[in-house]
Design a protein around this nucleic acid. Structure first.
Lengths: 115, 115
DNA sequence: TTAGTATATATGAAAATTCATATATATAAA
DNA sequence: TTTATATATATGAATTTTCATATATACTAA
C-alpha cells in the first residue's frame, strides 16, 4: 500500500464518508450508502470500485445486493489511520448515520458466521 | 482541520515527501527540500505554501532562509497520522534523506531555544 | 417451467472540474 | 548584485460527475 495512493483515496469527500461509514457499520451495500450520503447510484458505485481496486475495501454479493467492508488485509498503519480519523471526527459522518438510521427496508444480512 | 482537506494535502507525492521529511528533521528550508527531493524551486515553494495555508506547516524566516516545520497546533489525530505514516513507511523518504545528508553547505540554524 | 417486469449494481463515454507543473517575474535579505 | 523564496499565468493532465445503458438477480403470474 503506497502512502500516496492510500491518501488519494481518502482525499475525496464521498470516498472518505463511504469508508468511515462502512468502518463504523462493519458492512454496507450500495443502496444503503446512496441513502446515507444522499448521492447518485453511479457516483457511489464508482467510488466504491476505486476503493476496492486500491484494496481498501472488499465486497461480497448476497443475492441482489453487494456488500462492502474494510479489507481485512489492510496494513495496520492504514487501519490505524482510519480508526484515528473516525474516532476523532465523529461529526464528519453524523448526518450520514442519521439518514442511514431513518432508512426503512434495509436489506437483511445473512451472517457470515453464527452464534 | 477538515479530514478531507488534510488528506488532500497528503495525497500528492511531493507534498507528502516534504511533510514527512520535515517531520523527521524538525525543520527544513526551501533550498534543503529542493536538494533532498531533487525538484524545482517554484514547485517546492508552491507546495509548501499550500501546506502552510492549510495549517499543516508553519514557517519562520531567518535571514535569507525560510524554515518550515510541522505546525505545533496541528490536532493530535492529524499528528498521529503523520507519525504512523512516517514510522511505518521509512522507505518512502529514504532517498530524500540520503540526498539531504550529502548536501554540503547547509544553512546554519539559530536555535530558537538553547542548552 | 417460462415470460415479463422490477430492483440492484456496474460501466462506457462525454462533459465539467480540479490539480500540478513550467516559465517568467517579483520580492526580500545580505 | 547575488542568493533565497514567492507568486502570476498558462497549459496540460488527471479526476470527478453525469447520462445512458448493460448485467445480474429477484419476483410474479401464467
Amino acid at each position: 500500500m503506497q502512502p500516496t495512493q492510500f491518501y488519494k483515496c481518502l482525499s475525496d469527500e464521498t470516498r472518505l464518508r463511504c469508508l468511515l461509514l462502512i468502518k463504523a457499520e462493519q458492512e454496507l451495500c450500495v443502496c444503503e450508502l446512496m441513502q446515507a450520503l444522499d448521492e447518485s447510484q453511479p457516483k457511489i458505485s464508482r467510488h466504491l470500485a476505486q476503493l476496492r481496486n486500491c484494496e481498501l475495501l472488499t465486497d461480497r454479493r448476497q443475492g441482489q445486493w453487494v456488500f462492502y467492508s474494510i479489507n481485512p488485509e489492510l496494513p495496520p498503519w492504514a487501519l490505524n489511520v482510519l480508526t484515528e480519523t473516525l474516532n476523532s471526527n465523529p461529526a464528519f459522518i453524523e448526518d450520514d448515520k442519521l439518514r442511514l438510521q431513518k432508512m426503512g427496508d434495509r436489506p437483511e444480512r445473512t451472517r457470515l458466521c453464527c452464534i
